[in-house]
């Protein structure tokens, strides 16, 4: 059977691709640890991590670079996988966490929680998840009521995102301390992170990822269309809802410490679909690696471009991601297979 391969497909070079992605993640993480306002050689980074922290260099590595790098890897992976799941489940290439109201909902959750219970920062990922889920359900309900087309989904997302953004602004107007670093949060930024804010989000991301990957086979069957899926014994509705809730948990966890980062969840799944194909398990694994690498790289650029001044990473992402996305749209023109299914 193996001899019948007649053309080179993404399937054939998958191991090499994953090795390359993995290497890219490691390289980005290493550069992120070493470079910045102060360049630190890899050897010193290592010794600062392994030995007791002494001196300014070790302080920078442990309390600035390490949380920042971990935050980038985690948020990038979570947002990209969330976007990949949302696009697949909705069969809509225009969907992504920041487009269908998940991110702004999560942001509103974080802001409101920050205003009401400023001392319980560890629980803010849970608030983000609740907000993300609320935003997503609102958008899906509105889109379904108005015809469930790809466009109404995006329009409903824009409307709901606008409302949640106004909500965030209102909360911050009344309680200025609800979000530490308000403009960073709005644009998306990972400066001044502490490990204590990443750890609760990490557990949520880990659990949600594990569940999503265990459902990858079911997701593949869902992609065959509602009739085929049901005739194969799949209960489509509960699965859709479960997957979207998990995607909301991922995006919410990321937003809880990184703010409203756009584009990672939209662009990375598109790139990975082209490189890997649509089989869910490898696709989502590729999203996780690619998202981690790209966000870390963008954050590095944000630090280095105007050093010693820093840009919020959201600005770099949008400046790099926007044109790239337009290029993708122009290049693609013809429909992809998953454009067709409603």
């Amino acid at each position: 059977m193996k001899n019948s391969r007649t053309s080179s497909t993404p399937h054939d070079d998958r191991p090499a691709l994953f090795a390359a992605l993995f290497a890219a993640v490691l390289l980005c993480a290493l550069l992120s640890m070493c470079l910045g306002a102060v360049a630190i050689p890899p050897g010193e980074v290592l010794s600062a991590l392994l030995e007791a922290p002494q001196g300014a260099t070790a302080q920078i590595v442990r309390y600035a670079r390490l949380p920042r790098t971990c935050g980038c890897l985690l948020a990038g992976a979570a947002l990209a996988v969330s976007g990949g799941v949302i696009q697949s489940v909705l069969g809509n290439p225009l969907a992504a966490p920041n487009i269908i109201g998940v991110s702004s909902g999560a942001g509103f959750g974080v802001a409101l929680f920050g205003a009401l219970a400023p001392t319980m920062a560890a629980a803010s990922p849970a608030a983000a998840f609740a907000g993300a889920l609320l935003g997503m359900l609102l958008v899906l309900t509105i889109a379904e009521r108005t015809g469930a087309s790809k466009l109404t989904l995006v329009l409903a997302g824009a409307a709901v995102s606008g409302m949640f953004s106004a909500g965030i602004d209102a909360v911050v107007t009344f309680v200025p301390d609800a979000l530490n670093g308000y403009s960073d949060f709005r644009i998306g930024g990972l400066a001044n992170l502490a490990m204590s804010r990443i750890v609760p989000a990490f557990w949520i991301v880990l659990a949600a990822m594990a569940l999503i990957f265990s459902l990858a086979g079911d997701l593949d069957v869902l992609l065959l269309g509602a009739d085929t899926a049901q005739s194969l014994g799949l209960r489509a509705k509960p699965l859709r809802l479960a997957l979207l809730a998990l995607a909301a948990a991922l995006a919410g966890a990321a937003v809880s410490f990184s703010g409203l980062l756009g584009f990672v969840g939209l662009i990375v799944p598109h790139i990975m679909r082209r490189l890997i194909g649509e089989e869910s398990r490898p696709l989502l694994a590729g999203c996780a690696l690619g998202g981690a690498a790209i966000l870390t790289l963008c954050d590095l650029l944000a630090r280095l471009l105007f050093a010693p001044y820093e840009l919020p990473v959201g600005i770099v992402l949008s400046l790099a991601g926007g044109p790239f996305f337009i290029w993708l749209l122009l290049r693609q023109r013809g429909g992809r297979s998953h454009d067709r299914a409603a």
């Binding site: 009739d227 005739s231 679909r273």
Partner: peptide, 14 residues
């Protein structure tokens, strides 16, 4: 019972 529907999705998988 197995079912072969009239309209069939074409996902990008092998």
């Amino acid at each position: 019972a197995a079912y072969l529907p009239q309209s069939r999705a074409v996902p990008n998988i092998t």
